[in-house]
Design a protein around this nucleic acid. Structure first.
Lengths: 163, 163
DNA sequence: TTTTAGTTGACTAAATCGTTCGGGTATTAT
DNA sequence: ATAATACCCGAACGATTTAGTCAACTAAAA
């Protein structure tokens, strides 16, 4: 699981499609203007999203993109994996005998972290994000309350936003 | 919060220091050989780790690197932020008037996701990972049992490992 | 049939990743 | 002192990724 700006662009665009797609398809030009993402970059992203079954295209005037599945069933992990096909970070290619005769540390290590992050991203749907988006935003970060987790052991005062 | 292989290398190296640093400093050459990471790349990474107060260096023969803090207090987030200084993905530079007059979607959106991932990575310490590493590895992924979370809503059959 | 809008592919500049090289400087051992 | 060790620094490199551009094409609607 890799987390880059590319996947964020894709999720943002998919949210736009979800929010503005209630009446008919959404054009990439409209997404480009609303979200300030280059039209040609959106073309690349939506090519992958379409090939991965995330969206359907309608050609011709009045055309654009629709969600191929219900927003409740499309997860953030789906979108990210569609545009940001993951490379494994174990540098042993998934083999077991990567370092000497025992398996390398990286193997088990990142498998656990990846699994956690992946499971979280898989638990958040586009519908969740749209709901969150429509809220007139309450206090600080009351977003996605059902996915609470244990607080960090070290209470570091670093800012969380834009990290 | 960006997640690339660079941060993974750094965490792997820090685990190596933690595990092998019980008696004296650990040389980069040893880490390089054990973890199969280029020595010069390690030098770059440890330069940043040192400047961020993660490790202390001892020069000369018998020198190397020691943890600057106790392994119980060094989190994965600390290490990743040290080497992989994050760029904000909001393309508005943290400003509020990024899109038209209302704040752009990306802003609030990724703040929430970032916060969750960041909080998780901040809840895992080097000591946790070393403990996990020393275990003779039980079943599938019984790693880090205290940090359980709700299962994903969509039970997709995709493999989680090496994602 | 002309216009709209998606589809595809090639192509680019910039950044990042991981690496290599070549020099330094501080510390220890001889 | 001198040599060996090991950190320190910076430049450069190829490969990949990022983000964007452009041009030609196809399907559908007006």
């Amino acid at each position: 699981m890799r987390l880059t700006t590319k996947g964020r662009f894709a999720v943002t665009a998919m949210i736009d499609v979800t929010m503005h797609g209630v009446r008919g398809p959404v054009t990439l030009a409209a997404i480009s203007e609303r979200q300030r993402i280059s039209l040609s970059y959106l073309e690349q992203l939506f090519g992958k999203l379409r090939r991965h079954g995330m969206v359907e295209s309608v050609r011709g005037p009045g055309g654009g993109y629709n969600l191929a599945r219900d927003a409740e069933t499309v997860t953030v992990a789906d979108v990210i994996l569609a545009v940001d096909e993951p490379i494994d970070a174990t540098q042993c290619g998934g083999l077991e005998n990567c370092l000497d005769d025992r398996r390398c540390m990286t193997h088990e290590l990142w498998a656990g972290l990846n699994a956690h992050i992946f499971n979280y991203l898989r638990s958040v749907t586009l519908a969740d994000l749209v709901r969150q988006q429509r809220q007139p935003r309450g206090g600080e970060h009351a977003v996605l309350q059902d996915h609470r987790h244990p607080a960090g052991s070290a209470a570091s005062p670093e800012p969380v936003t834009a990290a």
